[in-house]
Write a protein that binds this DNA or RNA. Structure first.
Length: 577
RNA sequence: GUACCCGUAGCUCAGUUGGAUAGAGCGUCUCCCUCCGAAGGAGAAGGCCGUUGGUUCGAAUCCAAUCGGGUACACCA
């Protein structure tokens, strides 16, 4: 619908042979419906370039629009807006459009099958996923779903940091518990500040005993370290995969840092950068945040010229002792992604990584010769509340809410909804009491309720008239759908494909729940209007034809809600429990 | 000190990337069940979009300053 109007407008503009940036033209429903059904700003944008007045251009566009069969009226308003009014039949056609395309109604082909890599979660395998990861996980998975919707071939990817001191600390922690479980006394101060003391460490130790019994006792660290590292990581990854599965996520790819290292990818990345002249030996300037009195040591290191690619300072890729930094590993990792054919990538990171954003973008540009790009989305913290009172968490002491805790308490779907319903730059207050409330405090409930009501109407229909199939809904006469409440709903349904497209391109998944809330709102309003005005009731025992045409609108609404929930990874409820 | 983010109704947040008179929910107030699910709906009140300039036909949105809040700033991972 919007597309055909747009084409009509573009057709007129072509006659003026101006170079048109078509993406600037809006063809949208106006905020205030009294202006009409659709408006466009085309005349105002291109009057200057075309060398005519906005009014003159607008008149030409209007004339063309009026020849379109769906348009009933097109008028010029204000500084040059063109307000278009469509015939009811145009909106009634939307219903059939949805019914025929069903779950493909909102599909687009912007990606044209191109590869898209969405990296998210990527939690260190040193503990179970916690609430922060939950937001990351849900955000990333919905972004992936959205890109699939608009025609990309998407890979969901998890980067496993299976190297470094944290993993060693985990292995040592497990070993301590292992000794303990086998009856050895361990010193009180054995668990230092950098050790892991959560309950899961004991679980791993128990599994270690199941597998190796007492074999590893009384051996030197050099003898068990490699084995324990691998064992612990495997256990933790299984644990993490379970957690992800519990909120409906499965990754296509897990990439191991250690494996990349063995493939010498770090050296290859370095070679590429050297060839581009992006590597030099130097000393980083003293950070401004460190005062003159603070401790600061000049260190000659191998540096990456990140400033050439928009970063604020150059970045170290080797420590002063010659070993690689963490960032060097990331260079290798992103080189790997590029080599696997990804020129478009998205990465989801916590807001505390904001200092890392520019250097990652710089790395991808440098390694790909500017042919690849990575979009990074940072998400803010989630505060958990119990009846408006914040719950204190401390990761150190092992006293933090895990993803599993949340899912067990409020369920997968509510968790997903709460995590995705806010803009990623905004902190979320997650109140357990509100999350499970059955009221407007809980918007997911409101949407599910609309869906359940629609299902209930269909059941009611079937109890009177018997089964009905999709084809009958398509073929029926739609002239019963004429009330403003019905038209408003149809207009909103017409916008759905556009909504999916812009949401995906902007990488702002929260727009989906907002949209669905609006659909639910329009539906509930229509439902209630039927209480006062019997003509608007969905089921009329004495008029089967009209009833079917009302149902066709409900069916279209149901498809769109289902589609939206599916993007969010939420299962629609045909009955409220 | 620097970078990134936030500032919109009493509270929690939207605002379709620059469009016309800025919108929801909660809370407050008034109505609506003999009626397909009231777990709902209709309406009222509530705003200098932090502040000040700029860009243009047009700004909550873009730019520059500024104030307030958050996060991060060497070889940690």
């Amino acid at each position: 619908m919007f597309q055909s109007i747009r084409e009509c407008v573009l057709g007129t503009l072509k006659q003026y042979s101006v170079d048109i940036r078509t993406d600037l033209i809006t063809v949208e429903p106006p905020k205030d419906q009294s202006f009409g059904d659709i408006y466009t700003n085309a005349a105002m944008l291109f009057a200057k370039k075309a060398g005519v007045s906005p009014r003159e251009l607008a008149e030409a566009i209007c004339k063309n629009l009026l020849e379109c069969q769906f348009v009933s009226d097109a008028v010029i308003a204000g500084p040059g807006f063109i307000n278009i009014r469509l015939r009811d039949s145009a909106w009634q056609n939307v219903v059939n459009n949805v019914l025929m395309k069903k779950e493909k109604y909102s599909d687009a082909d912007i990606g044209a099958g191109a590869l898209m890599n969405v990296e998210f979660v990527s939690a260190n395998p040193t503990g179970p996923l916690h609430t922060g990861h939950a937001r990351n996980a849900v955000f990333g998975s919905v972004v992936a779903n959205l890109f699939e919707k608009i025609g990309y071939k998407v890979a969901r990817e998890f980067y496993v940091n299976d190297q470094g001191n944290q993993i060693k600390a985990l292995a040592r922690s497990v070993y301590l518990r292992y000794q303990e479980l086998l009856g050895r006394k361990i010193q009180d101060d054995a668990f230092g500040a950098d050790m892991y003391c959560g309950g899961y460490v004991k679980d791993i130790a128990q599994k270690l005993i199941d597998a190796y019994e007492a074999e590893l006792l009384d051996k030197d660290e050099s003898e068990w370290m490699d084995l324990l590292r691998k064992f612990s990581i495997d256990q933790m990854l299984d644990n993490i995969k379970d957690d992800l599965e519990s909120i409906g996520i499965s990754m296509e790819q897990y990439t191991s840092e250690e494996a990349l290292c063995k493939k010498k990818l770090v050296d290859e990345a370095l070679d590429i950068l050297i060839r581009h002249g992006d590597i030099y030996e130097g000393v980083l300037p003293r950070p401004k945040g460190i005062g003159d009195d603070d401790e600061w040591e000049e260190r000659p290191q191998t540096l990456f010229r990140a400033t050439k690619y928009g970063d604020d300072v150059d970045r170290a890729i080797k420590k002063s002792d010659g070993t690689w930094t963490y960032f060097a590993g990331d260079l290798a990792y992103h080189l790997d992604k590029i080599r696997r054919g990804y020129s478009r990538m998205v990465a989801v990171l916590g807001a505390d990584h904001n200092g890392y954003l520019k250097r990652l973008k710089a790395a991808v540009r440098a390694l790909s010769n500017d042919s690849a790009d990575i979009e990074i989305r940072l998400y803010q913290l989630v505060n958990f509340l119990e009846n408006s009172i914040p719950i204190k968490m401390s990761k150190r002491s092992g006293n933090f809410i895990t993803l599993k805790d949340v899912v067990e308490r409020v369920g997968k779907d509510v968790t997903r909804y709460m995590m995705i319903s806010r803009h990623h730059d905004v902190m979320i207050d997650f109140d357990f009491a509100k999350a499970i409330a059955h009221s407007m405090d809980n918007p997911l409930f409101y949407i599910q309720y609309a869906y359940a009501r629609i299902c209930s109407v269909f059941k009611h229909y079937e109890s009177i008239f018997g089964e009905i199939n999709n084809q009958a809904l398509i073929d029926c006469d739609k002239s019963c759908l004429f009330d403003v409440a019905e038209i408003s709903l149809m207009k909103a349904l017409a916008f759905w494909p556009e909504q999916v497209k812009t949401t995906a391109i902007a990488i702002e998944p929260h727009r989906i729940p907002n949209y669905l809330q609006n659909i639910a709102y329009l539906f509930h309003a229509l439902w209630n209007k039927g209480k006062a005005n019997t003509v608007l009731r969905f089921i009329d025992k004495d008029d089967k034809n009209c009833t079917i045409s009302k149902l066709s609108l409900l069916q279209a609404t149901r498809f769109v809600i289902e589609d939206g929930l599916k993007i969010m990874g939420i299962v629609p409820m045909s009955e409220m429990i």
